[in-house]
């Protein structure tokens, strides 16, 4: 199952709720303001490292670029995908949940 999170983890609880309810083995795609959770050295880094042991985590490249986040600042293990990769993730998962 693909979960998408589009909220900054510093402002909203969407990421926390996603991590609470996503089953182990799920895919999580961070997009829009959700991509801020992918950055190293923040207060949510530990949470993301923990998440990486249970889930495959992706961040949407165009949204990282728009926000001036270079890929070398991302937490190791988070994979960057484009919109085509987003489509592939949605198509290959059994179902999709957008944590709006």
């Amino acid at each position: 199952m693909l979960h998408t999170v589009n909220k900054s983890p510093f402002e909203k609880n969407s990421l926390d709720t996603c991590l609470r309810l996503a089953k182990s083995g799920s895919e999580i795609l961070l997009l829009e303001d959700g991509v801020y959770a992918a950055v190293k050295g923040t207060v949510v880094e530990q949470k993301m490292l923990q998440a990486l042991s249970d889930y495959s985590v992706y961040a949407l490249g165009p949204d990282l670029k728009a926000r001036g986040i270079e890929e070398d600042r991302l937490i190791d293990g988070i994979e960057v995908v484009g919109y085509d990769g987003f489509v592939d993730l949605a198509a290959s998962s059994d179902r999709v949940q957008s944590w709006l």
Binding site: N6, L31, E32, D33, P62, D63, G82, Y83, D84, F86, V87, D88, A90
Partner: peptide, 16 residues
């Protein structure tokens, strides 16, 4: 950004 993301996703899906 929702409408932009939806548009970009839709276009990418059609391209595929």
């Amino acid at each position: 950004q929702a409408s932009d993301t939806a548009f970009n996703f839709t276009k990418a899906a059609l391209d595929k």
